[in-house]
């Protein structure tokens, strides 16, 4: 029987897990009464922000809120609790487990040297409001979030891809996106320069001159200079010869001959 690999999360998995093993959790302490963090949470609630959960994890306050209230919450934290800087915001993919993304905002209070993490969850096709009006850095950070996860951000001034090319297909940090790239990624240059119809003509082994066949331990650096399997490459003259039959059939197709396959390509 073929081994089952889940399609909704294609990232590396532990090879061996004890079936009775339960992962320990980090300590989540309650917010101390009357502490600085307590005041922060109270001021949030006074402003009508619904705090679903608040705790201190590894020295940082974590506040869970509703996604609709993200702008209000961040505005409150910035203006009333003096969290003047947003150091980072991004998302975590929980589509496989819950069909949700977790979005986090890391804020910093420079006077008290205190940090808070505001986190919220949205459904897969739900958009989130931009916090660019509150923190300008969201301009870049939300673009990255959109690029990497495909999370739409409403009222963002320039929601375009930032790290990947504009015509890229797919969102690389989703758990469904394989590490070595999907089909679009593999044929990206060919599709762009020659057109999709050239995929068959070029063939997977000539698609990328830098491609290394991980199972070919003998001649991975000698594409175009192939020697018979097992032969010593140094003894064979390295002038460019047509690639031997059996190595790359698509490349060797004789275009003068007529065949059904060729007609399809034309």
């Amino acid at each position: 029987m073929r081994r089952y690999t889940p399609k909704d999360n294609v990232q590396a998995k532990a090879k061996y897990t004890d079936r009775f093993w339960v992962a320990p959790e980090t300590k989540k302490e309650p917010v101390g009464e009357g502490s600085f963090y307590d005041k922060v949470v109270k001021t949030l609630q006074e402003d009508g922000v619904e705090v679903l959960k608040s705790y201190i994890e590894l020295g940082m306050l974590v506040v869970e809120i509703l996604p609709e209230q993200n702008v209000a919450a961040l505005k409150n934290l910035k203006e009333k609790s003096c969290f003047k800087m947003c150091t980072e915001l991004s998302a975590v993919d929980y589509l496989a487990q819950d069909g949700e993304f977790e979005i986090f905002y890391l804020l910093l209070n420079l006077d008290e040297a205190k940090r808070v993490r505001v986190q919220t969850r949205i459904k897969e096709n739900q958009a989130i409001e931009s916090v660019e009006k509150v923190f300008k850095m969201a301009n870049f950070a939300e673009r990255e979030m959109y690029d990497m996860f495909g999370i739409y951000v409403n009222n963002h001034s320039n929601l375009k891809r930032i790290l990947m090319p504009d015509d890229w297909v797919g969102h690389p940090l989703r758990k469904t996106y394989p590490l070595h790239g999907d089909e679009h990624a593999q044929w990206y240059e060919v599709d762009k320069i020659f057109g999709k119809e050239y995929r068959d003509i070029i063939g997977p082994e000539n698609r990328d001159p830098a491609r290394i066949d991980r199972y070919d331990t003998k001649r991975f650096a000698r594409v175009g200079h192939e020697v018979p399997f097992g032969a010593d490459p140094s003894l064979v003259d390295s002038t460019i010869r047509p690639i031997e039959d059996g190595y790359s059939k698509t490349f060797l197709t004789d275009y003068t001959k007529e065949s059904k396959q060729l007609e399809n390509r034309k």
Partner: peptide, 8 residues
Amino acid sequence: RPPKGTVY
């Protein structure tokens, strides 16, 4: 295998 949790 670190414990379940988040750190920044």
